[in-house]
């Protein structure tokens, strides 16, 4: 599990940030994206995949979360 931060980009998309490794990337897809259920698998532009527990759509971004790494793009 890693601490991550999700924020909204100026264009309206989601931006993923992993402070520990200082990795910033755009989220290309998110598994659940409805007001009641939000989260699941996050795919990043660099090919990495992370998982966050599904939850109601957060009222406010940016938001720090715990995420599980399913597939890292590098190394």
């Amino acid at each position: 599990m890693a601490n991550i931060m999700i924020r909204k980009s100026a264009a309206g998309g989601l931006v993923f940030y992993l402070p520990k490794r200082d990795l910033e990337d755009t989220v290309t897809s998110i598994e659940f994206d409805t007001p009641e259920k939000w989260g699941g698998e996050l795919k990043l532009a660099n090919g990495g995949v992370y998982y966050i527990d599904p939850q109601p759509l957060p009222a406010r971004f940016p938001l720090s979360l715990r995420a599980k790494r399913l597939d890292a793009a590098e190394q």
Partner: peptide
Amino acid sequence: NYISRHMEEKYG
């Protein structure tokens, strides 16, 4: 950028 992100999250 780190502290900017923090202030964005905590203080909006």
